[in-house]
Amino acid sequence: MTDRVRNIDQLNVEDREWLLFDLLEGNLSEEDEAATLEAVEADDELFALWEAMQQTVLTPEPIVFTRKSELMKDEAAPIIIMAWWQKPMRVAAAIAAFAILSFGAYQYLTSYDQSTIPGVYSSLEEVTHPETFPQQDVIPQDETTTLPESPNGAETPENEPAPVKQFAHQQTSQPGRHLIDPQAGSQELPATPDPNLMMEVPVIAAQTLPLLLGLKMRTDGVEFGEGITPEAVPYEPIRSSGEVHHLKLKPATQYQGVRNSLNQGLAALIEPIKNTHIKVRRMQDHKDPGFRIEVMTDQYYAVAMVHLLPKNNR
C-alpha cells in the first residue's frame, strides 16, 4: 500500500482529489483501490467528493454523422494524386513564359532600330493576316479620357488599380472588328459585348501584361475571329470586357499600386494554370510594333495586344 493511501486522512484537498482521480481512472493497484474505497465509505466528506468525481465521466451523446454515404468508396474508385512537383512546375512554366515576354520586350525596345532582331523573337511566329488588325497610332495624352474614380473613394494609393485611360480609337476599314464605334469617338461600349466577337478578355490581364513588360506601350482588349467563335470555346470567361483600354503613357514605376495590380493580374492568369496554353505572335505589320499574346485555359480565352513604342519615343 502506498503512503498516500495509508495516510489518506492527512492528505490536503488537492491530494485527495488526485487520489480519487486515480481511483476513477483505474490507476491504482488492487490493494490501493480496495483501501481507498474503504476509506471513502467511512468518510462522508470523502464520499461526497468521490460522488462528485464520478459525475465528471462523460457519456457519449447520441450524435450521428448523417452523410456517411458520401464518404463510402467503391473498390474500383481511382485515386488521383498530383505529384508534388506538378503544381510548382506549372506555376514555374507560367512564370517562365512571363519572364520570356519581359525579356523579349526589353530586347525589342533596346534593339528597335536593328533590322534583324536576335534572341527569342526570331522564333516567334509572325502574324500572317495583318489585315485583321486595326490600324492604331500612339494616342496622345489629350485624346484620352480618364475613367470615373472608384465609387468608394477609400482606396489607398497602394491598393488602387493602375490608372486606365479609355482608348480613342481610329477609324477602321473593317466594320465589326473593333470594339469602339468610330463615329462615337471614345464612347464606352455597352456592357454586353457583341457575341459575334470574342471579347472575353480579363481587363486585369490586359492591364498586367504591359505593366509586366515595362514602359510605354498600349494594350487593346481585342479578340479577333480567326475561326474561334464563342460556340467553339464554350467555357465561361472570368471577366468580359467590351472596352478598349489604353494605359497611361508613363513608366510602370510611376504607377501607384502597380505591384498590387500586377499580382492580381498574375494571379488571374496563373490560377487557372491547368491546361494553360500561351501563344505569342509578333506583329510586324503594325505601325506600332508589338505582340499578340493569347492565353487559353480551360476557363477562359484571353488575348492581349501589346504595342511597343519605338525607343526614340520613350
Partner: peptide, 30 residues
C-alpha cells in the same frame, strides 16, 4: 475499400462528435 467503408460506418460518428465539440459548428465539423 471495404475496410475503409467499415471505418466510415464505425468511426465517423465519433469523429463528427469530436469535431463538433471543438468547433461548435455543424458545417465546419462535417
Amino acid at each position: 475499400a471495404t475496410e475503409y467503408n467499415e471505418c466510415v460506418s464505425d468511426l465517423s460518428d465519433g469523429i463528427f462528435r469530436f469535431a463538433l465539440k471543438h468547433l461548435r459548428d455543424q458545417f465546419e465539423a462535417e
